[in-house]
């Protein structure tokens, strides 16, 4: 694959080792604008570590990550976020002691410096943005509830909403439907479809049904490396993938 095409994210030769163990080994990944890419793979394949590396939570030992022309490996976490990368964690991480409204408000991308936060005012623009996102994530009628009173699925949506309000160009979701009911999964798949009209999305997921519903392309990881890449049908037919999932 060449770099002549207009990729939003290019990852090349990415490697990280923990005490000699290479959790991610010489991995390359190219994401196009507004594509939904799903990473699948057995446990311990290094999927979450890849997201950690892109968003700066873990520092790469080697390799390059370029996002909209910027080199992310040199930037701090909050700078990476401000450049347009949003990250959702595996377990819903929301602020239990704040209301749904406040959760979204804190995530609103204004007043991010100390002085900015002190001077921040809840004006109509903020209120409108919060309501709009709340509508999208099915929580419009829950705005005044404390976040810890939400159901597990609602918490997952809230965290997705907290990313949406930041208007990132790239959304990274780590197992967004884990622990959800079938109905909630359906709704989440719809939600992602809406989101991807103007975002690029990188998802880690195990649920093949869900992957089939949303994915443009699928990347299969195994032992820190890319095993196969292409449409879901393509990777399912790949003998290497079959070997990893069914072999041994």
């Amino acid at each position: 694959m060449s770099t002549s095409r207009d990729f939003i994210l290019t990852v090349e030769g990415l490697t990280v080792s923990f005490d000699g163990f290479k959790a991610v080994n010489d991995l390359s990944l190219y994401l196009e604008h507004n594509e939904i890419r799903v990473i699948i793979g057995p446990n311990g394949a290094g999927k979450t570590t890849v997201l950690d590396l892109i968003c700066g939570k873990t520092r790469a030992t080697d390799g390059a990550i370029r996002f909209k022309g910027q080199d992310l490996t040199r930037m701090k976490e909050h700078q990476i976020v401000r450049s347009g990368v949003g990250r959702k964690f595996q377990n819903p991480s929301i602020y239990d002691d704040l209301t749904v409204f406040e959760n979204l408000e804190v995530s609103y991308p204004r007043g991010r410096s100390v002085m900015g936060a002190l001077a921040f005012r809840r004006d109509q623009q903020v209120i409108d943005a919060v309501h709009e996102v709340a509508e999208t994530i099915f929580l419009a009628d829950q705005l005044d509830r404390r976040a810890d009173l939400l159901s597990h699925g609602q918490k997952q949506w809230l965290e997705i909403g907290m990313l949406l309000i930041q208007e990132p160009d790239l959304l990274m979701l780590d197992e967004p439907v884990a622990g959800m009911s079938v109905a909630e999964r359906k709704k989440t798949a719809e939600l992602l479809k809406v989101i991807t009209r103007n975002h690029t999305v990188l998802v880690i997921e195990h649920d093949m049904q869900f992957v089939g519903d949303i994915a443009d392309r699928v990347t299969v990881m195994h032992q820190g490396q890319v095993l196969s890449e292409g449409s879901l049908a393509h990777v399912k037919a790949d003998p290497k993938v079959v070997e990893v999932y069914l072999g041994h």
């Binding site: 923990f18 005490d19 959790a23 570590t49 950690d52 939570k57 873990t58």
Partner: peptide, 13 residues
């Protein structure tokens, strides 16, 4: 300068 102490291992945080 070295909050993890002198003899800590590097692990995934």
């Amino acid at each position: 300068l070295r909050p993890q102490g002198l003899f800590a291992l590097k692990v995934r945080r």
